[in-house]
Nucleic acid binder design. Structure first.
Lengths: 138, 138
DNA sequence: ATTACTGCAAAGCATTTGCAGACTG
DNA sequence: CAGTCTGCAAATGCTTTGCAGTAAT
């Protein structure tokens, strides 16, 4: 069955709810909120309770399967599947659209920080502005 | 008196509370939370109610006097005075120390985004890792 | 069978909002 | 004096936690 075929991370007990959360995350190209994941599981016919979604997400984040994304001026935390490729986002200040970028301006910057005795383990980058649909006029 | 000498932003009504909030922000080199600002005003003898701090901060942010900083894995928003010089922060994942950086890796990156029709109005950058005091071993 | 996970409800906490009185210009 | 701002209290909304039943290995 499909569940058996899914590439499942090592050392993680497979449950209906965790699969549903992972499927919801995979179905969204962009980071989504816990509430959105919950709604998605309902729509898919495998409803997962919101608090369970939070617990599953926290678990996945600790396991390195999922990344928590901080978005300024959004009071909700967003989550995305860790696709093991660097991603950062541009956020439209008008329509809140989230646009992924495939370049990472950090690459040349990180070594510099190491000189100050700071060992970088990760980073978070967001840009704010107007997307093509919204233009610079509000 | 000191209040008269303070360089006060244009078009902003000067009140005791707004001055107290601004003083608290000036007194901290690093971004601080609304609660911390509130506590600071108390200590300074000009206590400002927490909800007022939030309202004042939101007002200052809209006026461009203050910047809201999103710190991942911190459920509180942090605020800092806009000193009109680019600042980003490295956050130690162990002791949560916040270390300012004076380089901005965005400078060469932003024009690239403009090609995609996205007009950048601001950005947010944080690095996570271990500061010199904590080392890479947890 | 044992241990971990989930549904559910209720608490927790940062932030927001409503309103009447106080203050600024 | 008119309009705005503030103290205070209560509400809001995301997230966390406790507990008993359920499911996974």
């Amino acid at each position: 069955m499909a569940a058996a075929e899914r590439d499942w991370p090592d050392g993680i007990k497979k449950t209906k709810q965790r699969q549903a959360v992972l499927t919801a995350l995979e179905g969204s190209g962009n980071p989504i909120s816990a509430a959105a994941i919950c709604a998605q599981t309902e729509k898919a016919g495998a409803a997962v309770w919101l608090s369970t979604v939070y617990r599953v997400l926290e678990f996945f984040v600790r396991k390195g399967v999922v990344t928590k994304v901080a978005v300024l001026n959004s009071d909700m935390a967003l989550y995305e599947i860790n696709r093991f490729q660097h991603k950062h986002y541009a956020v439209c200040v008008r329509c809140r659209k989230i646009i992924p970028m495939d370049n990472c301006p950090m690459e040349k910057f990180v070594p510099k920080l190491a000189d100050d005795g700071f060992q970088v383990t990760g980073h978070n980058l967001e840009l704010y502005g107007y997307c093509g649909d919204c233009g610079a006029k509000g």
